[in-house]
Protein backbone atom coordinates (compact mmCIF):
# COMPACT_ATOMS: atom_id res chain seq x y z
CA UNK A 1 0.00 0.00 0.00
CA UNK A 2 2.85 2.32 0.73
CA UNK A 3 3.74 4.86 -1.85
CA UNK A 4 0.80 3.92 -3.99
CA UNK A 5 -2.25 5.99 -3.41
CA UNK A 6 -4.03 4.47 -6.37
CA UNK A 7 -4.50 7.79 -8.08
CA UNK A 8 -1.36 8.45 -10.13
CA UNK A 9 -3.11 11.00 -12.30
CA UNK A 10 -4.27 13.07 -9.34
CA UNK A 11 -0.81 12.78 -7.84
CA UNK A 12 0.75 13.91 -11.09
CA UNK A 13 -1.39 17.02 -11.33
CA UNK A 14 -0.90 17.88 -7.66
CA UNK A 15 2.84 17.35 -7.85
CA UNK A 16 3.16 19.66 -10.83
CA UNK A 17 1.14 22.29 -8.98
CA UNK A 18 3.28 21.81 -5.88
CA UNK A 19 6.52 22.15 -7.78
CA UNK A 20 5.35 25.32 -9.50
CA UNK A 21 3.91 26.74 -6.28
CA UNK A 22 7.00 26.04 -4.19
CA UNK A 23 9.20 27.44 -6.91
CA UNK A 24 7.18 30.62 -6.85
CA UNK A 25 7.40 30.81 -3.05
CA UNK A 26 11.18 30.29 -3.19
CA UNK A 27 11.44 33.12 -5.66
CA UNK A 28 9.23 35.36 -3.50
CA UNK A 29 11.06 34.59 -0.28
CA UNK A 30 14.49 35.23 -1.77
CA UNK A 31 13.38 38.65 -2.90
CA UNK A 32 11.90 39.61 0.47
CA UNK A 33 13.36 42.56 2.28
CA UNK A 34 16.32 41.83 4.56
CA UNK A 35 16.76 43.65 7.83
CA UNK A 36 19.94 44.29 9.75
CA UNK A 37 23.38 42.87 9.18
CA UNK A 38 22.29 39.23 9.53
CA UNK A 39 20.76 39.29 6.08
CA UNK A 40 18.86 36.18 5.12
CA UNK A 41 19.37 34.52 8.52
CA UNK A 42 16.83 36.81 10.16
CA UNK A 43 14.87 37.98 7.15
CA UNK A 44 11.15 37.32 6.85
CA UNK A 45 11.94 35.18 3.83
CA UNK A 46 13.98 32.59 5.72
CA UNK A 47 11.21 30.29 6.88
CA UNK A 48 9.16 30.46 3.68
CA UNK A 49 12.36 29.60 1.83
CA UNK A 50 13.17 26.58 4.01
CA UNK A 51 9.65 25.21 3.92
CA UNK A 52 9.20 25.90 0.23
CA UNK A 53 12.32 23.83 -0.42
CA UNK A 54 10.91 21.01 1.72
CA UNK A 55 7.63 21.25 -0.16
CA UNK A 56 9.52 21.18 -3.41
CA UNK A 57 11.24 17.97 -2.33
CA UNK A 58 7.89 16.42 -1.42
CA UNK A 59 6.47 17.59 -4.74
CA UNK A 60 9.36 16.01 -6.62
CA UNK A 61 8.95 12.73 -4.75
CA UNK A 62 5.30 12.73 -5.65
CA UNK A 63 6.10 13.63 -9.24
CA UNK A 64 8.68 10.88 -9.53
CA UNK A 65 6.24 8.37 -8.10
CA UNK A 66 3.34 9.33 -10.30
CA UNK A 67 5.51 9.36 -13.39
CA UNK A 68 6.66 5.85 -12.53
CA UNK A 69 3.00 4.87 -12.45
CA UNK A 70 2.41 6.68 -15.73
CA UNK A 71 0.22 9.29 -14.15
CA UNK A 72 1.06 11.76 -16.88
CA UNK A 73 -1.17 10.01 -19.36
CA UNK A 74 -4.21 12.18 -19.22
CA UNK A 75 -7.26 10.73 -20.78
CA UNK A 76 -9.32 13.80 -21.38
CA UNK A 77 -12.25 13.19 -23.61
CA UNK A 78 -15.21 15.36 -24.34
CA UNK A 79 -17.56 12.60 -23.41
CA UNK A 80 -16.09 12.10 -19.98
CA UNK A 81 -16.17 15.79 -19.27
CA UNK A 82 -19.79 15.96 -20.30
CA UNK A 83 -20.69 13.04 -18.06
CA UNK A 84 -18.88 14.71 -15.19
CA UNK A 85 -20.63 18.00 -15.75
CA UNK A 86 -24.04 16.37 -16.01
CA UNK A 87 -23.59 14.20 -12.93
CA UNK A 88 -25.93 14.83 -10.04
CA UNK A 89 -22.97 15.17 -7.66
CA UNK A 90 -21.54 18.02 -9.67
CA UNK A 91 -24.86 19.82 -9.76
CA UNK A 92 -25.36 19.37 -6.04
CA UNK A 93 -21.86 20.58 -5.33
CA UNK A 94 -22.36 23.72 -7.36
CA UNK A 95 -25.74 24.43 -5.81
CA UNK A 96 -24.43 23.98 -2.27
CA UNK A 97 -21.45 26.17 -2.94
CA UNK A 98 -23.52 28.84 -4.67
CA UNK A 99 -26.06 29.00 -1.85
CA UNK A 100 -23.29 29.28 0.74
CA UNK A 101 -21.78 32.10 -1.21
CA UNK A 102 -25.08 33.92 -1.70
CA UNK A 103 -25.77 33.48 2.00
CA UNK A 104 -22.40 35.05 2.76
CA UNK A 105 -23.09 37.99 0.45
CA UNK A 106 -26.40 38.73 2.10
CA UNK A 107 -25.08 38.47 5.64
CA UNK A 108 -24.99 41.91 7.15
CA UNK A 109 -27.27 43.27 4.44
CA UNK A 110 -30.45 41.48 5.48
CA UNK A 111 -31.21 40.70 9.12
CA UNK A 112 -29.42 37.60 10.35
CA UNK A 113 -32.54 35.64 11.31
CA UNK A 114 -34.19 36.25 7.97
CA UNK A 115 -31.31 35.34 5.71
CA UNK A 116 -30.37 32.33 7.81
CA UNK A 117 -33.92 31.02 7.85
CA UNK A 118 -34.17 31.49 4.10
CA UNK A 119 -30.88 29.70 3.59
CA UNK A 120 -31.82 26.73 5.76
CA UNK A 121 -35.27 26.57 4.20
CA UNK A 122 -33.93 26.60 0.69
CA UNK A 123 -31.29 23.96 1.32
CA UNK A 124 -33.70 21.61 3.05
CA UNK A 125 -36.23 22.19 0.28
CA UNK A 126 -33.69 21.58 -2.46
CA UNK A 127 -32.53 18.33 -0.95
CA UNK A 128 -36.11 17.31 -0.20
CA UNK A 129 -35.60 16.99 3.52
CA UNK A 130 -39.14 17.23 4.89
CA UNK A 131 -42.54 18.62 3.98
CA UNK A 132 -42.67 22.37 3.63
CA UNK A 133 -44.36 23.33 6.89
CA UNK A 134 -41.97 21.29 8.98
CA UNK A 135 -39.19 22.81 6.95
CA UNK A 136 -40.48 26.29 7.66
CA UNK A 137 -40.69 25.49 11.34
CA UNK A 138 -37.18 24.04 11.50
CA UNK A 139 -35.57 26.86 9.55
CA UNK A 140 -37.18 29.74 11.40
CA UNK A 141 -36.77 28.11 14.79
CA UNK A 142 -33.12 27.24 14.33
CA UNK A 143 -32.27 30.68 12.97
CA UNK A 144 -34.12 32.40 15.80
CA UNK A 145 -32.61 30.24 18.52
CA UNK A 146 -29.10 30.78 17.19
CA UNK A 147 -29.67 34.52 16.90
CA UNK A 148 -31.21 34.75 20.35
CA UNK A 149 -28.58 32.79 22.21
CA UNK A 150 -25.66 34.45 20.45
CA UNK A 151 -26.78 38.00 20.03
CA UNK A 152 -28.96 38.47 23.07
CA UNK A 153 -27.57 36.18 25.73
CA UNK A 154 -23.85 35.96 25.09
CA UNK A 155 -23.32 39.25 23.28
CA UNK A 156 -21.43 37.48 20.54
CA UNK A 157 -21.49 39.72 17.48
CA UNK A 158 -23.43 38.36 14.55
CA UNK A 159 -22.88 39.37 10.97
Amino acid sequence: MNGNSGMPRGDFIVSVILVVFSGWVIHMSLSMRRFGELGLAASPGLSPLVFAILLLVCGLILLRRSVAQRGYRMAWSGQKTAVFLRAVETRHFIVVLATIFIYYLFLGVVHFVMISAVYVFFTIWYFKGVVWWKNLLISTLSATIIWYSFDQVFLIPLP
Binding site: V130, K134, L137, I145, S149
Partner: peptide, 17 residues
Protein backbone atom coordinates in the same frame (compact mmCIF):
# COMPACT_ATOMS: atom_id res chain seq x y z
CA UNK B 1 -40.75 16.03 12.83
CA UNK B 2 -38.53 13.14 13.66
CA UNK B 3 -37.88 12.37 17.28
CA UNK B 4 -34.25 13.29 16.85
CA UNK B 5 -35.05 16.81 15.75
CA UNK B 6 -37.44 17.20 18.62
CA UNK B 7 -34.88 16.09 21.16
CA UNK B 8 -32.29 18.38 19.59
CA UNK B 9 -34.58 21.38 19.75
CA UNK B 10 -35.66 20.63 23.29
CA UNK B 11 -32.05 20.33 24.42
CA UNK B 12 -31.20 23.63 22.77
CA UNK B 13 -34.24 25.39 24.22
CA UNK B 14 -33.68 24.09 27.71
CA UNK B 15 -30.07 25.16 27.76
CA UNK B 16 -31.00 28.56 26.33
CA UNK B 17 -33.62 29.11 29.02
Amino acid sequence: MSRGVRVFLVVMLVSAV
